[in-house]
Amino acid sequence: MSAEVKVKSEPQVKKPTDEVVIETRNLTKVYRDFWGRQKVRALKALDLEVRRGEVFGLLGPNGSGKSTTIKLLLGLLFPTSGQALVFDRQAQDVRKNERIGYLPEESYLYKFLNAEETLDFYGRLFDMTTAQRRSRIDELINMVGLDWAKRRQLKEYSKGMTRRIGLAQALINDPELIFLDEPTTGLDPIGTRDMKDLILDLRDKGKTVLMCSHLLADVQDVCDRIAILHQGELKELGRVDKLLTVQDVTQIHAKGLSESAKDEIRQVISRHEAELLMMDNPTSTLEDLFLRIVRESEARPGRRAQDVDKDQEVDRETESSNGDR
């Protein structure tokens, strides 16, 4: 993932189809202890359908059953009752694995292998030939931006680097369906942005993505549809744009308004017996600022960022994180 600004060419983006790739029916999971006693009801009667081509987000606080759902769909856990179907097959069926990729919560990889060996190992598990593996590995290592560290053992990797190689391993077979468990944890803002761009890229290629996160911003930015889980129960399900649209509030963005013009608008609003909720200058997010500084620094290494927007009330005297990479 290079930190350059991705120029979004808007090609013929594939739209979600009606084909259901993931289906859960009444899916329930109760964790039991060694003696078979009930410990945690982690998931309660979940009904879900994910269609080909969409980015589906599972949202919920820690311990709400998101990872449990994903593990049930992968066959790492067996349902207590109900069914989990992937590509119309039982989740425990190994054959579905040909077409899926999975990025676990944390990248649990073999620490004694280096990046290339890791991807080579997983490539072999897909029965890929040497030539196929070689080109795919180069491509992926390049994509996740680990060219400079591909010969180093994973035990020397930072968390973010491990995450990147974990992502590469999930994509080794160019899967149709990708499960991402908390894809952005452990990543710096650039990594997070790259990850989000990548998810959108995957969607543009017609892949289906099921991701879970407790980071609301991430989900909001990339997901087409979301399900909100709380204590193992499905609380809300629907399209993100629909769910978030506040029907009775109108938002206006304008540039170059004079004070008198603003007063006029206030009068218009009160004349129509509507309530003015807010009118002030917008602030950018810290994320935007940070990304701009880093990119600036990469373009002109060794210097402090120059053209940060003059309107911003930024303390220029504090050190910004430039020139360190």
Partner: peptide, 14 residues
């Protein structure tokens, strides 16, 4: 125990 098995058994390996 290290869960490295997660990314192995979710591949088509038998």
């Amino acid at each position: 125990k290290n869960r490295t098995i997660y990314s192995v058994v979710t591949k088509p390996v038998r």
